[in-house]
Simulated scan of single mutants.
Amino acid sequence: MTQSHDQHTEHIAVDDPIIEVRDASVTYDEGTSYVLDGVSLDLGRGEILGVVGESGSGKSMLASALLDAVPDPGLLSGTIEYHPDSGAATDILELDTEDLRALRWEEISMVFQGAMSSFNPTMSLRKHFVETLEAHDEDVEAGMDRAHELLEDLYLEPDRVLSSYPHELSGGMQQRALIALSLVLEPEVLVMDEPTAALDLLMQRSILLLLDDLKEKYDLTMLFITHDLPLVAALADRMAIMYAFRLIEIGQTEEIINHAAHPYTRALLNSTPNLDAPLEEMRPIEGQSPAPINMPDGCAYHPRCPLAEDQCRTEVPDFHIVAGDHGSACFNWRESYDEIELVHLDDGERAIPEGDRQ
Protein backbone atom coordinates (compact mmCIF):
# COMPACT_ATOMS: atom_id res chain seq x y z
CA MET A 1 0.00 0.00 0.00
CA THR A 2 1.12 3.56 -0.57
CA GLN A 3 0.76 6.55 1.64
CA SER A 4 -1.22 9.63 0.70
CA HIS A 5 0.13 13.01 1.80
CA ASP A 6 -2.49 15.46 0.55
CA GLN A 7 -4.00 16.51 3.86
CA HIS A 8 -4.57 20.25 3.93
CA THR A 9 -2.67 22.29 6.51
CA GLU A 10 -5.77 23.80 8.06
CA HIS A 11 -5.27 24.35 11.74
CA ILE A 12 -6.89 25.71 14.87
CA ALA A 13 -5.39 29.16 15.45
CA VAL A 14 -4.77 30.72 18.86
CA ASP A 15 -4.80 34.43 19.68
CA ASP A 16 -1.19 34.77 20.82
CA PRO A 17 0.98 31.96 19.44
CA ILE A 18 4.52 31.59 20.72
CA ILE A 19 5.24 28.77 18.25
CA GLU A 20 3.51 28.22 14.91
CA VAL A 21 4.02 24.89 13.14
CA ARG A 22 2.93 24.65 9.52
CA ASP A 23 2.97 21.46 7.45
CA ALA A 24 5.87 19.94 9.40
CA SER A 25 6.98 16.59 7.98
CA VAL A 26 9.91 14.29 8.68
CA THR A 27 10.89 11.65 6.16
CA TYR A 28 13.42 8.85 5.95
CA ASP A 29 14.44 6.47 3.17
CA GLU A 30 14.80 9.27 0.61
CA GLY A 31 11.36 10.65 1.37
CA THR A 32 9.43 7.39 1.15
CA SER A 33 8.79 6.88 4.88
CA TYR A 34 7.00 9.57 6.88
CA VAL A 35 7.46 9.69 10.66
CA LEU A 36 5.79 13.11 10.90
CA ASP A 37 3.23 13.95 8.24
CA GLY A 38 2.00 17.47 7.54
CA VAL A 39 1.43 18.59 11.15
CA SER A 40 0.16 22.14 11.66
CA LEU A 41 -0.60 23.55 15.10
CA ASP A 42 -0.18 26.64 17.28
CA LEU A 43 1.26 26.67 20.77
CA GLY A 44 -0.32 29.57 22.65
CA ARG A 45 1.81 31.81 24.84
CA GLY A 46 1.42 30.77 28.47
CA GLU A 47 -0.57 27.61 27.80
CA ILE A 48 0.11 23.95 28.48
CA LEU A 49 -0.60 21.87 25.38
CA GLY A 50 -0.73 18.11 25.87
CA VAL A 51 0.20 15.96 22.87
CA VAL A 52 -1.20 12.43 23.20
CA GLY A 53 -0.92 9.25 21.18
CA GLU A 54 0.20 5.65 21.17
CA SER A 55 3.88 4.71 20.99
CA GLY A 56 5.14 5.33 17.47
CA SER A 57 2.53 7.97 16.64
CA GLY A 58 5.07 10.72 15.93
CA LYS A 59 4.85 12.60 19.24
CA SER A 60 8.58 12.55 19.98
CA MET A 61 9.42 13.41 16.39
CA LEU A 62 7.23 16.50 16.72
CA ALA A 63 9.21 17.49 19.82
CA SER A 64 12.50 17.05 17.96
CA ALA A 65 11.15 19.05 15.04
CA LEU A 66 10.35 22.03 17.28
CA LEU A 67 14.06 22.30 18.06
CA ASP A 68 15.25 21.32 14.58
CA ALA A 69 16.85 18.30 16.23
CA VAL A 70 15.62 15.48 14.00
CA PRO A 71 18.17 12.63 14.03
CA ASP A 72 20.07 12.01 10.79
CA PRO A 73 19.29 10.99 8.12
CA GLY A 74 15.79 12.33 8.72
CA LEU A 75 14.67 15.27 6.57
CA LEU A 76 12.52 17.94 8.20
CA SER A 77 10.38 20.21 6.03
CA GLY A 78 7.70 22.83 6.65
CA THR A 79 7.81 26.00 8.72
CA ILE A 80 8.30 26.35 12.47
CA GLU A 81 8.17 29.95 13.69
CA TYR A 82 9.09 31.10 17.18
CA HIS A 83 7.61 34.39 18.40
CA PRO A 84 9.62 35.80 21.32
CA ASP A 85 8.16 38.31 23.77
CA SER A 86 10.04 41.03 21.93
CA GLY A 87 11.58 41.14 18.48
CA ALA A 88 10.71 39.61 15.15
CA ALA A 89 9.51 36.07 14.60
CA THR A 90 12.19 33.47 13.92
CA ASP A 91 11.91 30.58 11.47
CA ILE A 92 13.68 27.88 13.48
CA LEU A 93 14.43 25.81 10.37
CA GLU A 94 16.34 28.73 8.82
CA LEU A 95 18.73 29.29 11.75
CA ASP A 96 22.45 28.66 11.40
CA THR A 97 24.26 26.38 13.83
CA GLU A 98 25.22 29.10 16.30
CA ASP A 99 21.79 30.73 16.42
CA LEU A 100 20.15 27.33 16.78
CA ARG A 101 22.46 26.50 19.69
CA ALA A 102 21.42 29.75 21.39
CA LEU A 103 17.73 29.08 20.79
CA ARG A 104 17.93 25.68 22.44
CA TRP A 105 17.89 25.95 26.25
CA GLU A 106 17.83 29.78 26.20
CA GLU A 107 14.45 30.14 24.44
CA ILE A 108 13.08 26.62 24.03
CA SER A 109 14.25 23.90 26.40
CA MET A 110 13.48 20.19 26.41
CA VAL A 111 13.12 17.49 29.06
CA PHE A 112 13.47 13.95 27.77
CA GLN A 113 12.16 10.66 29.08
CA GLY A 114 14.58 9.02 31.50
CA ALA A 115 16.76 11.50 33.34
CA MET A 116 19.60 9.00 33.84
CA SER A 117 20.31 8.93 30.10
CA SER A 118 20.32 12.75 30.01
CA PHE A 119 23.04 13.18 32.65
CA ASN A 120 26.75 12.40 32.32
CA PRO A 121 27.30 9.77 35.04
CA THR A 122 30.89 10.96 35.62
CA MET A 123 29.86 14.53 36.48
CA SER A 124 28.21 15.93 39.58
CA LEU A 125 24.92 17.76 39.19
CA ARG A 126 26.69 21.02 40.02
CA LYS A 127 29.03 20.50 37.06
CA HIS A 128 26.04 19.95 34.76
CA PHE A 129 24.57 23.29 35.78
CA VAL A 130 27.90 25.15 35.58
CA GLU A 131 28.75 23.75 32.13
CA THR A 132 25.30 24.69 30.82
CA LEU A 133 25.65 28.25 32.07
CA GLU A 134 29.21 28.60 30.72
CA ALA A 135 28.26 27.17 27.32
CA HIS A 136 25.69 29.95 26.93
CA ASP A 137 27.93 32.72 28.31
CA GLU A 138 25.73 33.22 31.36
CA ASP A 139 26.91 34.60 34.68
CA VAL A 140 27.63 31.42 36.63
CA GLU A 141 27.10 32.88 40.11
CA ALA A 142 23.71 34.36 39.21
CA GLY A 143 22.80 31.19 37.35
CA MET A 144 23.62 28.98 40.30
CA ASP A 145 21.45 31.19 42.49
CA ARG A 146 18.62 30.45 40.05
CA ALA A 147 19.50 26.76 40.19
CA HIS A 148 19.16 26.76 43.98
CA GLU A 149 15.76 28.45 43.74
CA LEU A 150 14.53 26.06 41.05
CA LEU A 151 15.63 23.01 43.02
CA GLU A 152 13.85 24.35 46.11
CA ASP A 153 10.73 24.97 43.98
CA LEU A 154 10.89 21.29 43.05
CA TYR A 155 11.18 20.25 46.70
CA LEU A 156 14.82 19.23 46.46
CA GLU A 157 17.62 20.16 48.86
CA PRO A 158 19.98 22.16 46.59
CA ASP A 159 23.31 21.55 48.32
CA ARG A 160 22.75 17.82 48.55
CA VAL A 161 21.55 17.46 44.96
CA LEU A 162 24.28 19.64 43.44
CA SER A 163 27.02 17.73 45.24
CA SER A 164 25.61 14.36 44.10
CA TYR A 165 26.27 12.28 41.02
CA PRO A 166 23.23 11.16 39.03
CA HIS A 167 23.29 7.57 40.33
CA GLU A 168 23.13 8.84 43.89
CA LEU A 169 19.63 10.27 43.33
CA SER A 170 16.34 8.41 43.01
CA GLY A 171 14.50 8.41 39.69
CA GLY A 172 12.08 11.08 40.85
CA MET A 173 14.90 13.28 42.15
CA GLN A 174 16.82 12.90 38.90
CA GLN A 175 13.79 13.90 36.85
CA ARG A 176 13.12 16.96 39.00
CA ALA A 177 16.80 17.95 38.82
CA LEU A 178 16.62 17.65 35.04
CA ILE A 179 13.59 19.95 35.00
CA ALA A 180 15.54 22.48 37.07
CA LEU A 181 18.49 22.21 34.66
CA SER A 182 16.18 22.78 31.69
CA LEU A 183 14.90 26.00 33.28
CA VAL A 184 18.19 27.48 34.55
CA LEU A 185 18.62 29.64 31.42
CA GLU A 186 15.08 31.01 31.85
CA PRO A 187 13.55 29.74 28.59
CA GLU A 188 10.14 30.83 27.36
CA VAL A 189 9.04 27.34 26.26
CA LEU A 190 9.51 23.96 27.92
CA VAL A 191 9.02 20.87 25.75
CA MET A 192 8.56 17.71 27.80
CA ASP A 193 8.80 14.34 26.05
CA GLU A 194 7.30 11.61 28.29
CA PRO A 195 9.10 13.13 31.30
CA THR A 196 7.38 10.93 33.89
CA ALA A 197 7.04 7.65 31.98
CA ALA A 198 9.66 5.80 34.06
CA LEU A 199 8.23 6.93 37.40
CA ASP A 200 5.56 5.44 39.63
CA LEU A 201 2.06 6.89 39.62
CA LEU A 202 2.48 8.85 42.85
CA MET A 203 5.68 10.52 41.62
CA GLN A 204 4.06 11.28 38.26
CA ARG A 205 1.20 13.12 39.96
CA SER A 206 3.61 14.93 42.25
CA ILE A 207 5.71 16.19 39.35
CA LEU A 208 2.60 17.33 37.48
CA LEU A 209 1.56 19.46 40.44
CA LEU A 210 5.06 20.94 40.59
CA LEU A 211 4.99 21.71 36.87
CA ASP A 212 1.73 23.56 37.27
CA ASP A 213 3.30 25.67 40.01
CA LEU A 214 6.43 26.34 37.91
CA LYS A 215 4.32 27.37 34.95
CA GLU A 216 2.61 30.06 37.02
CA LYS A 217 5.72 31.28 38.83
CA TYR A 218 7.98 31.50 35.77
CA ASP A 219 5.33 32.36 33.16
CA LEU A 220 6.19 29.27 31.11
CA THR A 221 4.65 27.83 27.98
CA MET A 222 4.70 24.02 27.93
CA LEU A 223 4.28 21.28 25.38
CA PHE A 224 3.76 18.02 27.30
CA ILE A 225 4.06 14.81 25.29
CA THR A 226 2.67 11.56 26.67
CA HIS A 227 0.83 8.35 25.82
CA ASP A 228 -1.08 8.70 29.10
CA LEU A 229 -4.22 10.69 28.33
CA PRO A 230 -5.57 11.00 31.92
CA LEU A 231 -2.14 12.13 33.12
CA VAL A 232 -1.99 15.10 30.77
CA ALA A 233 -5.70 15.84 31.21
CA ALA A 234 -4.94 16.87 34.78
CA LEU A 235 -2.37 19.41 33.58
CA ALA A 236 -3.08 20.64 30.05
CA ASP A 237 -5.21 23.57 28.91
CA ARG A 238 -5.60 21.99 25.47
CA MET A 239 -4.96 18.54 24.04
CA ALA A 240 -3.69 17.48 20.62
CA ILE A 241 -4.19 13.86 19.59
CA MET A 242 -1.78 12.19 17.15
CA TYR A 243 -2.22 8.98 15.22
CA ALA A 244 0.12 7.47 12.61
CA PHE A 245 2.32 10.59 12.41
CA ARG A 246 -0.59 12.98 11.84
CA LEU A 247 -2.50 15.37 14.07
CA ILE A 248 -6.09 14.12 14.11
CA GLU A 249 -7.85 16.14 16.84
CA ILE A 250 -7.22 19.23 18.95
CA GLY A 251 -9.25 21.24 21.43
CA GLN A 252 -9.70 22.39 25.00
CA THR A 253 -9.01 19.57 27.45
CA GLU A 254 -12.54 19.46 28.89
CA GLU A 255 -13.96 19.52 25.38
CA ILE A 256 -11.80 16.60 24.28
CA ILE A 257 -12.57 14.55 27.39
CA ASN A 258 -16.32 15.07 27.19
CA HIS A 259 -16.94 15.60 23.46
CA ALA A 260 -14.12 13.89 21.56
CA ALA A 261 -15.11 13.78 17.90
CA HIS A 262 -12.55 11.50 16.27
CA PRO A 263 -13.28 7.76 16.57
CA TYR A 264 -9.66 7.13 17.61
CA THR A 265 -9.80 9.69 20.41
CA ARG A 266 -13.03 8.18 21.69
CA ALA A 267 -11.49 4.70 21.51
CA LEU A 268 -8.42 5.97 23.34
CA LEU A 269 -10.60 7.40 26.10
CA ASN A 270 -12.52 4.12 26.36
CA SER A 271 -9.32 2.08 26.59
CA THR A 272 -7.88 4.08 29.48
CA PRO A 273 -8.42 2.40 32.86
CA ASN A 274 -8.07 5.34 35.21
CA LEU A 275 -10.56 7.98 34.17
CA ASP A 276 -13.88 7.49 35.97
CA ALA A 277 -15.30 4.28 34.54
CA PRO A 278 -15.02 0.85 36.19
CA LEU A 279 -12.20 -1.35 34.91
CA GLU A 280 -14.64 -3.88 33.44
CA GLU A 281 -16.03 -1.20 31.12
CA MET A 282 -12.67 -0.46 29.52
CA ARG A 283 -12.52 -1.38 25.84
CA PRO A 284 -9.17 -2.14 24.19
CA ILE A 285 -8.53 -0.72 20.72
CA GLU A 286 -8.49 -3.59 18.26
CA GLY A 287 -5.61 -3.88 15.80
CA GLN A 288 -2.34 -1.97 15.62
CA SER A 289 -1.24 1.44 14.40
CA PRO A 290 0.54 1.29 11.03
CA ALA A 291 4.30 1.35 10.51
CA PRO A 292 5.91 4.12 8.42
CA ILE A 293 6.71 1.68 5.61
CA ASN A 294 3.18 0.28 5.44
CA MET A 295 0.80 3.21 5.65
CA PRO A 296 -2.71 2.68 4.30
CA ASP A 297 -4.24 5.00 1.76
CA GLY A 298 -6.81 7.52 2.96
CA CYS A 299 -7.35 7.97 6.68
CA ALA A 300 -4.63 6.03 8.49
CA TYR A 301 -7.11 4.92 11.17
CA HIS A 302 -9.62 3.36 8.78
CA PRO A 303 -8.41 -0.28 9.19
CA ARG A 304 -9.29 -0.05 12.91
CA CYS A 305 -12.28 2.27 12.69
CA PRO A 306 -15.85 0.95 13.08
CA LEU A 307 -17.19 3.93 11.12
CA ALA A 308 -14.89 3.63 8.09
CA GLU A 309 -16.50 4.07 4.67
CA ASP A 310 -15.15 4.04 1.10
CA GLN A 311 -14.20 7.72 1.32
CA CYS A 312 -12.09 7.01 4.42
CA ARG A 313 -10.14 4.35 2.53
CA THR A 314 -9.17 6.62 -0.34
CA GLU A 315 -9.02 10.23 0.95
CA VAL A 316 -7.12 11.88 3.79
CA PRO A 317 -9.67 13.90 5.82
CA ASP A 318 -9.11 17.60 6.38
CA PHE A 319 -9.72 19.21 9.74
CA HIS A 320 -13.36 19.96 10.41
CA ILE A 321 -14.36 22.56 13.00
CA VAL A 322 -16.48 20.72 15.54
CA ALA A 323 -17.17 23.60 17.92
CA GLY A 324 -15.21 26.77 18.63
CA ASP A 325 -11.53 25.86 18.68
CA HIS A 326 -12.17 22.12 18.57
CA GLY A 327 -11.12 20.46 15.32
CA SER A 328 -11.15 16.84 14.14
CA ALA A 329 -9.69 15.25 11.00
CA CYS A 330 -12.52 12.80 10.37
CA PHE A 331 -15.27 12.52 7.75
CA ASN A 332 -17.66 10.85 10.21
CA TRP A 333 -17.12 12.88 13.35
CA ARG A 334 -20.84 13.61 13.74
CA GLU A 335 -21.68 9.91 13.65
CA SER A 336 -19.01 9.11 16.23
CA TYR A 337 -21.08 10.72 19.00
CA ASP A 338 -23.88 8.19 18.57
CA GLU A 339 -21.88 5.17 17.45
CA ILE A 340 -19.00 5.27 19.98
CA GLU A 341 -20.20 6.10 23.48
CA LEU A 342 -17.69 7.33 26.03
CA VAL A 343 -17.78 4.91 28.94
CA HIS A 344 -16.53 7.42 31.51
CA LEU A 345 -19.59 9.65 31.02
CA ASP A 346 -23.03 9.02 32.47
CA ASP A 347 -26.10 9.04 30.20
CA GLY A 348 -26.82 12.71 30.81
CA GLU A 349 -23.31 13.77 29.88
CA ARG A 350 -23.35 11.73 26.68
CA ALA A 351 -25.99 13.92 25.10
CA ILE A 352 -24.53 16.58 22.84
CA PRO A 353 -26.23 19.93 23.61
CA GLU A 354 -28.34 21.19 20.72
CA GLY A 355 -26.48 23.81 18.71
CA ASP A 356 -23.12 23.27 20.44
CA ARG A 357 -21.71 21.12 17.63
CA GLN A 358 -21.57 22.49 14.11
Rank of each mutant, 00 (worst) to 15 (best):
T2D: 04
Q3K: 10
Q7P: 00
Q7G: 14
H8L: 09
I12R: 05
A13P: 07
D15H: 08
D16H: 13
P17V: 09
R22H: 09
D23C: 02
D29A: 12
D29M: 05
E30P: 00
Y34P: 00
V35F: 01
L43W: 00
R45Q: 05
G50N: 04
V52N: 02
G53C: 01
G53V: 02
E54Y: 09
E54L: 07
E54P: 04
G56H: 06
M61T: 15
M61Q: 11
M61G: 04
M61I: 15
L62S: 03
A63Q: 00
L66P: 00
L67A: 02
D68A: 15
P71M: 05
D72C: 01
D72E: 15
S77Y: 03
T79P: 00
E81G: 00
Y82L: 01
P84Y: 05
D91P: 06
L100W: 07
M110E: 07
Q113W: 09
S117D: 12
P121G: 10
R126A: 11
V130Q: 07
T132P: 05
L133W: 05
H136C: 08
E141A: 15
G143V: 05
E152G: 01
D153L: 02
L154N: 08
L154D: 06
E157N: 14
P158L: 06
P158I: 06
D159Q: 13
D159K: 13
L162E: 09
P166E: 04
E168S: 05
L169V: 08
L169M: 13
A177C: 09
I179H: 02
I179D: 02
L185E: 01
E188W: 00
E188C: 00
E194T: 03
P195E: 05
A197Y: 10
A198Q: 14
R205A: 14
L214I: 03
K215L: 02
E216Y: 05
K217M: 01
L223V: 12
F224V: 11
T226L: 03
T226Q: 06
L229H: 05
P230W: 12
L231H: 04
A233I: 03
A236K: 06
I241V: 15
I241A: 06
Y243Q: 03
F245P: 00
L247H: 03
I248R: 02
E249K: 07
I250L: 14
G251Y: 11
G251C: 09
I257K: 03
H259E: 07
H259F: 08
A260G: 15
H262Y: 12
T265F: 10
T265D: 11
S271I: 04
N274H: 13
P278L: 13
P278F: 11
E280T: 08
E280D: 15
R283G: 00
R283E: 11
I285L: 08
E286T: 12
G287R: 08
G287C: 07
S289H: 07
S289I: 15
S289Q: 13
S289A: 15
A291V: 11
A291I: 08
I293K: 08
N294F: 02
P296L: 05
D297S: 14
G298I: 07
P303F: 02
R304I: 11
R304Y: 09
E309F: 00
D310N: 12
Q311R: 15
T314I: 13
T314Y: 04
P317M: 06
D318Q: 05
D318N: 13
D318E: 04
H320N: 14
G327A: 14
A329G: 07
E335L: 08
Y337S: 10
D347T: 11
E349R: 13
R350L: 13
I352V: 15
P353T: 12
